[in-house]
């Protein structure tokens, strides 16, 4: 099995010696769907921020598809980010851009022609069921719709790895399950998915491997 994410004794220490992660070692293989769970402050978001290169590890090793993220230079960080899809709890859509522009922007920076951008964006919006809202602005959409747009943006460049930080944190249970089904579909196509959530009921419903964190330590692997 190809390894997509691998951490070895990974630690992140903030000022005053507070450990957000301590000696975390875990592996996620290609094509897996894994939940990262634990209470608030367990270190889930810190691990995702390290995976997105928003922060650097204090100690240990973090590799994605064999690349040591700690060694990436700023330009390489941006190129690396373009190879993964990230879904945020607060959606992070650009308010002054339409749905179409929010999603196609990723393709624009990849240098695709406007025809290719439109075609691919339409496909992915159709997949999340929002092709009819492509000219709307994010603020005109419901929370569930905004999150589906964020998922469409994360998928539009066909990444091999999708990371999601509490993607259902702002949604009701029915919408949460709907969003999780989208992640299941993404995974069924062979994409590796890592979702951070504290919602144990949702994990039970989806029924995939879960790694529990508590106070920066891995406490359980289900």
């Amino acid at each position: 099995m190809d390894r997509v994410i691998e951490t070895h004794r990974l630690s992140k220490v903030y000022r005053r010696g507070v450990y957000a992660l301590r000696d975390v070692s875990l592996q996620i293989d290609k094509g897996e769907f894994v939940f990262l769970t634990g209470p608030s402050g367990a270190g889930k978001s810190t691990l995702l921020r390290l995976l997105l290169c928003e922060e650097r590890p204090s100690d240990g090793r973090l590799t994605v598809s064999g690349r040591n993220l700690d060694e990436l230079r700023p330009r390489e960080v941006q190129a690396y980010r373009r190879t993964i899809g990230f879904v945020f709890q607060d959606f992070k859509l650009i308010p002054r851009m339409t749905v179409l522009e929010n999603v196609s922007f990723v393709l624009r920076v990849l240098g695709l022609s406007s025809v290719q951008q439109r075609r691919r964006t339409f496909q992915v919006l159709k997949w999340v069921g929002l092709q009819h809202r492509m000219n709307a602005y994010p603020q005109d959409l419901s929370g569930g719709e905004q999150q589906r747009i964020a998922i469409a943006r994360a998928l539009v460049n066909d990444p091999a790895l999708v990371l999601a930080d509490e993607p259902t944190g702002n949604l009701d249970p029915d919408l949460s399950l709907e969003i999780m089904n989208l992640f299941r579909e993404i995974n069924a196509r062979g994409t590796t998915v890592l979702v951070a959530t504290h919602d144990r009921e949702l994990i039970r419903q989806v029924g995939r491997r879960a790694i529990s964190l508590d106070q920066g330590h891995v406490t359980e692997v289900m």
Binding site: R75, A79, R81, F86, K92, I94, V106, V109
Partner: peptide, 16 residues
């Protein structure tokens, strides 16, 4: 600033 942060997080090149 929010827009710039989003651009950074989705991997927009520094030139963008």
């Amino acid at each position: 600033r929010d827009e710039v942060e989003i651009m950074r997080l989705v991997g927009a090149p520094l030139s963008y």
